[in-house]
Design a binder for these strands. Structure first.
Lengths: 352, 352
DNA sequence: AGGCCATAGTTACACGTGTAAAGTACGCGC
DNA sequence: GCGCGTACTTTACACGTGTAACTATGGCCT
């Protein structure tokens, strides 16, 4: 025994009012007491600072922490450090990436590898400023959000709240914050180019409304642009995910004179529904009409004819996003692999 | 001006080391300074304690907070209070509820109405104890997790970490923590009962593997049980979401002697694929074979024949879960409406 | 022998907040 | 005039952590 007077706070916890039999979650002081060292030493050991600590006490501290199931208090740690290791992702319902749960799962793993914790926040607070206010309360180290929410005002508020890294995602036009240029139009361009190369001279584009409206609009615009370069006309078909919404169009297309030779649907579910309706009407896919979707819905691969579609390499995107956030926090630029990772892939199957 | 010597901490922030041009996120002290009052008064005003504050200073404080865009530091608040207002939801990939994003969106809103913040945590840490350790660091007020992760050890660890409310979800057999008895088998029972009432004498059950394996197994078991009460046999069909997986079964069913008169698929996507294959094989749905799924996938409503399925009233479930968490935190029991809200609804369309 | 460095541990303080307790001014009744 | 409640405001402390600065103890070199 060396010394015994390392009472950081002598008395145990005693809430001034009630203290309703709190189960005494262990603090670093408890670990210190048990290991017979000071709290500072515990901290040095557990955070593996370069501060010298003898191997013997190191082991004792580790053992004590283990026995007590000690977990450091993230709040206190964040308060002391001035920042947390939290990466906040306010989830938006109109996510560009389909299969966003897969993306988030990958992102979580990648961030964990970089000593960051992913926390997703619901979209209770839709309007920019009010939302940013709520996010700021958590004092996250980084925020990764859709550009539709990352208005200049929201970004400014977050900056002032001490958020070190703010990463936007969406169309690459903004300049007031680093951006992951995840352009939904890229997939549409890729699909259109494929259909043109395949020989299409007359296109149609399904434009879903509702939650998908914004993404669909961008994609439609891209289709028109690419097709225009080859002097190919594009018929715009606004629709919902219902039989009644698609049926009239398909009815019209039974007449070869009014029929496009290929259709791009900005969402696989709509592509699947369309193919279903086309077959029902006695048309053949892709012989009469080719169909290409976007999103790589698993059902599209299983049905016949199997759906040609575009997809993102989700794990790769998650990797570069996580990497970029880490780099931003460390004062560097975005991951140079970013653009390559964001390029959509064409998945050619049977439908077009 | 009344007094001027309310310097809580006289010197402004000056990080001992670098302080790299921190953009001075405002603290309550800044608000106090600007309003010409003490920090305590600011706190009283902003938290609307029952402590008396004159209307004049109240307005001044509010104005100052507004101008400074002040957002309280959640870490400090949580540290002081001993608990946060965070409800942590470790998301599991094998979520019972389909459309879990819709559920989370609703849950978020409901919790917000009850002064709680929903944070979702990825499933990086799959194994119980290690995961619980990570969750404990955040010192959330409540944790809502799947029973598969809420092992007794994990629950114990969370309890010791000071988490006040731990709510499990899943099969209702556990006793060491309050549970939301969201039984996937209930939907299967409902669907089977419907098919039997409809006159089915020979059933089949699609049992998807992969991520859905566990839920599927439970549902299959339920189907067998309910059918057995009526002496109806159930053919078990293990499958994946691919054409090759379903085709052989459908091929066999072309022979009326080997054909069930109704099929329950524990997931709508599989039901959709099955119908597709049945039609392809020249069989009629529901005349030759009725098909019922679970999950209320929007595509199921759009395709023909429209899919009969089961669904949960997601907003209602979210409401009772949020309500129960709040009640747990306040020392009460679960919301009495719980069981009613969890009952699945039958959505009868064309396929069965 | 005395000065100096390295090692191993400590003390002390700050982070931003909430709130009990103490203080200040003021009006009122004795 | 003095005590006393009332209305407001401030002071003081604790929450749990990380780390700069300090103390103590030897060993080594001059």
């Amino acid at each position: 025994m060396q010394c015994r007077s390392m009472i950081d706070k002598s008395e145990g916890r005693s809430g001034p009012t009630v203290a309703p039999a709190a189960p005494a979650r262990p603090t670093s002081a408890d670990v210190a007491r048990r290991a017979g060292v000071s709290r500072a030493t515990v901290s040095h050991v557990l955070n593996s600072t370069d501060h010298p600590v003898s191997e013997r006490t190191r082991q004792r501290v580790l053992a004590a922490a283990q026995e007590l199931q000690y977990a450091p208090n993230a709040s206190a740690r964040a308060l002391r450090a001035g920042r947390s290791n939290i990466v906040l992702v306010p989830m938006s319902r109109s996510a560009v990436i389909p299969g966003q749960d897969e993306f988030l799962e990958n992102l979580d793993r990648e961030l964990a590898d970089r000593d960051l914790v992913l926390l997703m926040h619901g979209d209770r607070t839709t309007n920019g400023a009010r939302g940013a206010h709520a996010w700021a309360e958590l004092r996250p180290a980084a925020v990764y959000l859709d550009v539709s929410r990352g208005t200049p005002a929201a970004v400014e508020l977050l900056r002032r709240a001490g958020v070190q890294a703010i990463l936007l995602t969406g169309v690459p036009s903004v300049t007031y914050a680093p951006t992951v240029p995840l352009d939904p139009a890229a997939a549409a361009r890729l699909a259109t180019q494929h259909l043109l190369t395949r020989g299409s001279r007359r296109l149609a584009c399904l434009v879903p409304g509702g939650a998908l409206a914004e993404v669909s609009a961008r994609r439609h615009h891209a289709v028109v642009q690419v097709a225009a370069a080859d002097n190919v006309p594009v018929e715009r078909v606004d629709c919902e995910l219902s039989s009644d919404s698609i049926a009239p169009v398909v009815g019209r297309w039974r007449d070869p004179a009014h029929r496009p030779d290929a259709v791009y649907a900005s969402n696989d579910q709509f592509a699947i529904l369309l193919i279903h309706k086309l077959l029902e009407a006695g048309l053949e896919v892709p012989q009469d009409i080719a169909v290409v979707g976007s999103g790589d819905d698993p059902l599209g691969a299983a049905l016949r004819p199997a759906l040609t579609t575009t997809s993102f390499v989700v794990p790769e995107i998650a990797r570069v996003v996580a990497s970029s956030i880490r780099r931003l926090l460390d004062g560097h630029d975005l991951d140079p692999d970013m653009e390559a990772a964001l390029r959509p892939r064409l998945v050619i199957r049977e439908s077009g």
